[in-house]
Design a protein around this nucleic acid. Sequence first.
DNA 1: CTCCAAAATGAGAACGTTCTCATTTTTATG
DNA 2: CATAAAAATGAGAACGTTCTCATTTTGGAG
Lengths: 331, 331
Amino acid sequence: MSSTIIDIARDCGYSKATVSRAFAKPEAVSPKAREKIYASAKKLNYAPNVIARAMVTRRTENIAFIIHEKQYPAILNPFYSPILETVLQEANRRNYSLFIGARQDMLLPNNQFSIKRQMDGVIFAGEVDKPLIQALRAQSIPVVLLNNHWELEGLPCVEADHFAGAVEATRHLVRRGHTRIGLMAGLFSKQVREARFQGFRSVLNEAGLPLDTRFVKELEPTLEVADAEMTRLLGEGDCPTAFFCTNDTIAVGAMKAILRAGRRIPQDIALVGFDDSYLSRVVEPGLTTIRVDPERMGRIASEKLFAMIDGGEGAGEIIRLKPELIQRGTT
Amino acid sequence: MSSTIIDIARDCGYSKATVSRAFAKPEAVSPKAREKIYASAKKLNYAPNVIARAMVTRRTENIAFIIHEKQYPAILNPFYSPILETVLQEANRRNYSLFIGARQDMLLPNNQFSIKRQMDGVIFAGEVDKPLIQALRAQSIPVVLLNNHWELEGLPCVEADHFAGAVEATRHLVRRGHTRIGLMAGLFSKQVREARFQGFRSVLNEAGLPLDTRFVKELEPTLEVADAEMTRLLGEGDCPTAFFCTNDTIAVGAMKAILRAGRRIPQDIALVGFDDSYLSRVVEPGLTTIRVDPERMGRIASEKLFAMIDGGEGAGEIIRLKPELIQRGTT
DNA sequence: CTCCAAAATGAGAACGTTCTCATTTTTATG
DNA sequence: CATAAAAATGAGAACGTTCTCATTTTGGAG
């Protein structure tokens, strides 16, 4: 069907080696030859077969971004999507393609885990999937973790400082004079959940404020669940004057409930979210939130990964990014 | 580094043909052989090299989803992302992988366009990129268009019925008794823009309502631009009592401006959006909007594409999906 | 014009599979 | 137990490149 390097070679009178060079390393070929070769290629509609190329170079120039199934759906996740977008750009900048992975893609018929597609490297986001990652390492494919470290394996990881973020958020509410502060905590991975909870608690302790367990809720981090939960809380007496929500989706769900109940934000109830996702700019008033620059996360993770791809072993460093409070209208 | 089929063959005493079969077509191999082969594979950490496989089968089991650069950033686009998510699922269900494409990924050193990666098929979303698509066809790679047709080439396309959607939206406002209706139109592709505008205009005509050009605005479809534009409109006198916004992002930006100005939605100003993206559920009150089921779009496009991949030529049918009004709180 | 170094080109192996076709082994039938 | 049919296995070519190394061509200095 489509023509090969041999057809071109025959057509233009050069050897396939020279044709190959004209595409892979144009400066190694004389201008005259290049011209003829490109003309033939155009005529015969030739484009190099990257599969055959990958076969011998042992590089596919593909990387994968895999999100743990718990964080599904991957692309719609407001926290991960801007990171993914950055990784895509970084990959393209280096002439790499990006593959979006899903777990089942990697199960061989013999029940071994494996990266089914040949990938030069993988970024793994969200909860750590140990068997899969071990399989990747066994095939010595570079891996960078995102937002969940795994110290034992010494894998490089880029993550938000969840504890510091929760501290920032809670401290901000305390400074604004709130003495009764609730917590709406999303059911994320254990690592993330605990760090954010500890941050929250440590500020209450240090400020001598009580931790009222009636207003500490763990919930699925969806709009609807948060809305329902907040509606319930508003029904009870004694509702706190402020809430720290451990992500923006929860905060925005809570906002809807509060506004629908006719209470004012921030006068009656103040809110702080987490992530500075797209959502925080959509609502009115804008959501005060904790930002960990997703572009920076994506960029650092990509750089780390490409360094490993090019340079062999990478240090298993954990890079913990400092969060920043973005004040908008909800406090 | 990693072991090949020959290492396994040597280790377990079978030929490489049989080892190959054990992974590609397990039922064609005796249980005894399978067991031995899998044991060797596990021991030597073997996984089939899909590149080598693709080389001979001439199938990569990869498809690409490419969004025209104007619609960038691709992953964050609230309209395309749920479609992309569906395509990802459909691909995985068939054991295919999904690549996210970007334009520059396909430029050869001789300035020919080409799909640089070997892809079994491509879904092309947004404005039609003619030279690229022609290049794909020249390589006889199946292509399905999304939301922008190209009749001349007879390419299959799945798109929203933009005209009908705009009619629904505007008619809804007319029925609610509005007589002065403004338009905030996003600068999408010519096809989409015109269809939506014609829908809007035809309803005004049929209802005998005026089209006041002061309140017909074309703008970049971003939150910030829409917010600024609406703030400006509110400043002028005579502001209409309703607006049709040609996507949700614009509508939500407008909402922010209206609420900030202290006007009430929908009592003072009513709004209808377009897309039923997740934004419409985030805001309070929820946004009345026009829905074209993105999962259906993604599914149909995928089915079309895989039919072409499996069955050769596909008919260049244009499938136009009927939109539906979703009424929420802004009308 | 001769010679040498540098640049350009070519020959052919290698990459790790699958596939076709022939051969061997197993199973079922009488 | 003999035989035919079916199932399982194996040998080796083929897929389309790149890469190494050898050879040829080019260009400049003397």
